[in-house]
Structure formats: structure tokens, C-alpha cells
């Protein structure tokens, strides 16, 4: 999904730094509260891509929802550029695992939904057209969501999020439901978009390789159900080496991949270089 026309950089839209300070979230259940997030202290630098990985139910999506304002923490603070998030924040935009497009609207009309309130009509139309071109959807602008493939719908969903000119882009497993090849293409598309319109990106993913390919840092969350009472949600922070675009077969990434998978409790049968020479790790 190479870009033919690189989008202009938008200097009017700065990326925002994000600070989460001692964030705590507990879900009420009939048998008492179930802790989902505890002691989350994270700082995202402006323009950084950070991936959240962890076992199912560890609170990855919940953490993302604290930043978007779709959910409110029970304790702690979430700050964007120093000001607290209260309710749905104009400076953030979300793309969900499902495209969640309105079925009765065309792709272009769906993308327009993301435009900030009060955008002048002409500017809005131009911006939607620009985003559709960026996503390679200009031919499909007039189609309804059910008339396009899952990958196209997901690109429209990403375009809708970008239409908001977010300083922080929140992606909740955006490529999780796509087939393997489409997913790889979408990852490169996301990097192109990030290069053209750098926002701070918080990405929830199940896919360790995706996290290592895209992110500057990977946060490994633990499930609090089996954890000791005082253990914080963030189990590890991994700085990913190398500049993007990265070589998917990079040996250092393979090492980190094995490390992360072991952190997730998955046996990798990984053989470190030097242990044997006829094994391939990826």
C-alpha cells in the first residue's frame, strides 16, 4: 500500500504527550470488585508510538479507554500535555477493532463524522478527500460499508479517526480482524500515515510481531487476577531498537519477540544464535 501522493505535514496539529499517573480501574462484579488496572505510571512522548501487549483481560483496552475519555479511572490522573482528560477529549481519536462505520452512510460520509465540530464545509470536504486518497479509498468514497472488504472498512475507520486531527491516536487492535497479508499492508500504511502526520500513537495489539515492527516502546501488561496484590499492571517496558521501517526479520526483534512471548506465558522453542545453527527463529 505504497503512497503515491504523500500527504502534507500538518504543522497546525501538534502531537501531544500523554502522562498516566498511578491510574487505577476496578470493574464491579456481583462478587466484589475485579481490579483491571493498578499503579499505571506511563509517560508517552509526543509523536511516539507505544504498543500495549498482554494476555486477554489484562486491561489493554481499558487503559486505552482511559486516555480516550470513554472510561474514567477510579484513581490516578490522565494528562494530555499537562491538562487532565475529562470526558471525550477533542485531542484524541479512536479506531476500534471493528470498523464501526454507520451502515447507512457512504465511506466519505463516515469519514466526515470524524471532522472536528465546526469545520467549514469546504475545508471538511477537502480533508475527507485527502484522507480517502491517503488510504487508497478515493474510488470507493461513495460506497456503503457493506459493499467494501473488511480491510477497506478498517482503512475508512482509520481515516475517520485521522479526520479529527488527533494529537493522540488511539488504536484498539485495529488490524486484529484482518487477514495476515492485509494486516501487514495496513501496518505499513499506518507508518506512512505516522510519517506524514505524526501523532502520538497508543496501539493495543495481540500480535507481538506487530508491536515490535511498529512501536518505539512496547508495554507488557500483566493480568491482575493471578498477580500479587501490590503488583502494578505494567510488567515490563521494552525499548525497541532500530529505526522504522524496520526489517521484519531483524535478529534483535526475534530475540525480543521470544522474550515477550515468554512474558506472555507462551513457549517459543526459541534457540538463541550460537546454541544451534540450523534453526530459524522467525
Amino acid at each position: 500500500m505504497a503512497l503515491t501522493t504523500p500527504a502534507r505535514t500538518r504543522a497546525d496539529r501538534p502531537a501531544h504527550g500523554v502522562v498516566l499517573h498511578d491510574v487505577r480501574r476496578t470493574f464491579p462484579t456481583p462478587t466484589g470488585g475485579r481490579p483491571v488496572l493498578r499503579g499505571v505510571d506511563v509517560e508517552l512522548r509526543a509523536g511516539e508510538i507505544v504498543a500495549l501487549v498482554g494476555p486477554s483481560g489484562c486491561g489493554k483496552s481499558t487503559l486505552l479507554r482511559q486516555v480516550s475519555g470513554l472510561d474514567i479511572p477510579d484513581g490516578g490522573r490522565v494528562l494530555l500535555d499537562g491538562t487532565p482528560v475529562a470526558g471525550i477529549d477533542r485531542r484524541t481519536a479512536v479506531a476500534f477493532q471493528e470498523p464501526r462505520l454507520l451502515p447507512w452512510r457512504t465511506l466519505a460520509q463516515n469519514v466526515a463524522l470524524g471532522l472536528p465540530a465546526g469545520t467549514p464545509k469546504d475545508a471538511g470536504r477537502a480533508r475527507v478527500a485527502e484522507l480517502l486518497r491517503l488510504m487508497g479509498l478515493e474510488e470507493s468514497a461513495g460506497l456503503r460499508p457493506r459493499q467494501v472488504s473488511g480491510g477497506m472498512a478498517q482503512r475508512a475507520s482509520l481515516a475517520r479517526a485521522l479526520a479529527r486531527n488527533p494529537g493522540v491516536l488511539l488504536l484498539d487492535e485495529p488490524f486484529g480482524a484482518l487477514d495476515a497479508l492485509t494486516r501487514l499492508r495496513m501496518q505499513d500504511l499506518l507508518l506512512d500515515v505516522h510519517a506524514a502526520e505524526p501523532a502520538t500513537v497508543l496501539l493495543v495489539t495481540h500480535d507481538v510481531e506487530e508491536a515490535l515492527y511498529l512501536a518505539d516502546r512496547v508495554l507488557l501488561l500483566r493480568s491482575l487476577v493471578a498477580a500479587p496484590d501490590d503488583a502494578p499492571s505494567v510488567a515490563r517496558v521494552i525499548d525497541v531498537p532500530g529505526r522504522r521501517p524496520r526489517d521484519r526479520a531483524d535478529q534483535r526483534l526475534a530475540e525480543l519477540r521470544a522474550e515477550l512471548l515468554e512474558g506472555l506465558g507462551v513457549a517459543t522453542h526459541h534457540v538463541r544464535p550460537g546454541d544451534a545453527d540450523d534453526h530459524h527463529s522467525i
Partner: peptide, 11 residues
């Protein structure tokens, strides 16, 4: 509810 949440997320 997913659609409603998406609508809310966009203000």
C-alpha cells in the same frame, strides 16, 4: 452499542 460508542468517541 458499538456504533453508539463510536458516535460518542467522535464527540
Amino acid at each position: 452499542p458499538h456504533l453508539v460508542e463510536a458516535g460518542r468517541a467522535f464527540g
